[in-house]
Write a protein that binds this DNA or RNA. Structure first.
Lengths: 340, 340
DNA sequence: CTGAAAGCGCTTACAG
DNA sequence: CTGAAAGCGCTTACAG
């Protein structure tokens, strides 16, 4: 059996509670005893049993990380990288991150992660679009919640979001500056706020530069935001009598699908059709030509979400701040700004 | 405060230990009391606090899942899908899976996941190539270990592996049957057993069909097994005076890189160069042409690993069985078996 | 078949 | 500044 706090106390010749105080950096411990205790800990290679600590403190040291399962199956390591960001940051704060996927629809019988039932988390990070009912359920249970990359239509929540409007605006302005005047929009499910914000950014850029808004150039509400969706949407746009000379897709998968559509239509990217995506997923560098896109700092989002939830847990505050994270334009071959 | 076992006992009018027996499906409980207790549990919406249970049983209910961090950054959702398989299966057995990444080199100060120090897992699943020293360290600590998709040169371990030899053999035979006689091999780090087994499968297929083994057609030991590596290796092979007419790449990323190299060399895939990959990652369907590859059942590997480790935990056995999982040839456009 | 009691390994008032 | 003791919420021999 590995050593317990009692063994340490005995070895150091002090009370068990003294050992505990040393470990938890309590005050009122003389340097001498502290050193004695630390020495005993080192010699025994003692590590406090987490479960005992949990029971005593009534804090679990766990953070739940909830993700709609459909994102997990996607090719893009987008949310997994956000998760990785949370994992790294959580270590620093001595928390574990419990990753669980849920189905998109809310089903109180199935959608509620075990750790909520078992009171096994101190806070929950919800990432991407999940059922609003689930979010409300958790929030109402009194446990701190932080949202990443999703925000329900109603309610207030602490959240870490992409500055989608600004990002889309910059992407489209980039195309306009390259001389494009007919810029198509290819977007996923518009009921996802990220997407509607990107649509707004698109519109704002057109407006500001005095370009007409042409609804025939807009393909919205694509079911899955998948490469296949992007492919189909782009194919339609390219069949117009006066097709767009550039496309802004609200994610890289759809941008990649668009490139495929262009190739099939015997169009050259970027010469005949410029394409800009969003997210900067890994494979965006492998397309032909490599994709120009808006980079989203994924790990950073996870880091900030953990800091936020740890603060909420520690302070007991009920603040509902939104944190907007800026994106960055990554110019590669598909927009025509550089020659391939 | 949410209800405890005491509240249930009081409400049901029985002893606390009786409630515990009902929950843990102990025998010797009359139907009548069982029903009373179950009713009280339902009415109070009682859920046993996991931490208390952990402390009492000295079992944590957690399984560690260790992955080299470099895999997590890869575009391929390969190991993440294995993880997902473990998560689903773990739920059925009432375990949590704690996902942690480690650096490739073993550093006892940094590489040892917290949950091992804190005795916070009952078993550990190690996935992909991780430091042999880490594996040994964990195994020697007495905790059950199951390896997925990696096996050290020395030692015996329970493991869930891809049948790499057979898979590679089938992939190459497929190319041979399509009429190819000069088949190149593009492989990652040969010190990874998966890769060397795939190389063996390649050689075995050539031999069996009486084709010469030509070392100039073999590009081994590529540093990262990345698309970039595949691209560079293929470019070299295609510059040979008599270049290969087909390539077998030991993963899809390298196969995709190879396709890019072919395109740059003005070669048509599959007419001038047939390509077969390995893994069947999502993006393999998005290449042009879509990639023919060997599908690896990723979730299934995770499922089997969990079953195996739960059995080891429960039984206390020290068996070291290898489980080999068969791959499946997925024919798409890049091999020339179907017309695009 | 059921109940009283000890114990898992910590933390935390409370005394001193 | 340090120690003795209670308590966190379960499970598990042990009696009955």
């Amino acid at each position: 059996m590995s050593p317990t706090i009692k063994d340490v106390a005995r070895k150091a010749g002090v009370a068990q509670s003294t050992v505990s105080l040393v470990i938890n950096e309590g005050k009122h411990i003389s340097q001498a005893t502290r050193q004695k205790v630390l020495k005993a800990i080192r010699e025994l290679n003692y590590h406090p049993r987490r479960s005992a600590r949990v029971l005593a403190t009534r804090k679990t040291g766990n953070i739940g990380f909830i993700l709609a399962d459909k994102y997990f199956y996607q090719a893009e390591p987008f949310y997994t990288r956000i998760f990785l960001g949370t994992e790294f940051e959580a270590r620093k704060h001595n928390y574990y991150v419990l990753l669980t996927t849920v189905h998109e629809e809310f089903n109180p019988k199935k959608s509620i992660p075990r750790y909520l039932m078992e009171k096994n988390v101190d806070g929950v990070i919800l990432t991407g679009k999940v059922s609003d009912a689930l979010i409300l359920y958790i929030k109402n249970s009194g446990i701190p919640v932080v949202l990443i990359d999703y925000f329900p239509k109603e309610g207030k929540f602490p959240s870490v979001l992409i500055d989608n409007l600004q990002g889309a605006y910059e992407a489209v302005v980039h195309l306009i500056r390259l001389g494009h005047r007919r810029i198509g929009f290819i977007g996923g499910t518009i009921d996802h706020p990220s997407i509607s914000d990107r649509f707004k950014g698109y519109g704002q850029a057109l407006e500001e530069f005095g370009l007409p808004k042409n609804s025939s150039l807009v393909a919205k509400d694509l079911p899955d935001s998948s490469a296949e969706d992007g492919y189909r949407a782009a194919r339609k746009l390219l069949k117009l009598s006066t097709p767009p000379t550039a496309l802004f897709a609200t994610n890289d998968s759809m941008a990649m699908g668009s490139i495929r559509a262009a190739r099939e239509a015997q169009l050259k990217v970027p010469d005949d059709l410029a394409v800009v995506g969003f997210d900067d997923i890994e494979v965006a560098t492998h397309t032909h030509p490599p994709l120009t896109t808006m980079r989203v700092p994924k790990e950073e989002m996870g880091t900030l979400a953990v800091r936020k939830i740890v603060e909420l847990i520690d302070s007991g505050d009920k603040f509902n701040e939104k944190t907007l994270i800026a994106t960055e334009l990554i110019v590669r071959g598909s927009c025509g700004a550089t020659k391939v």
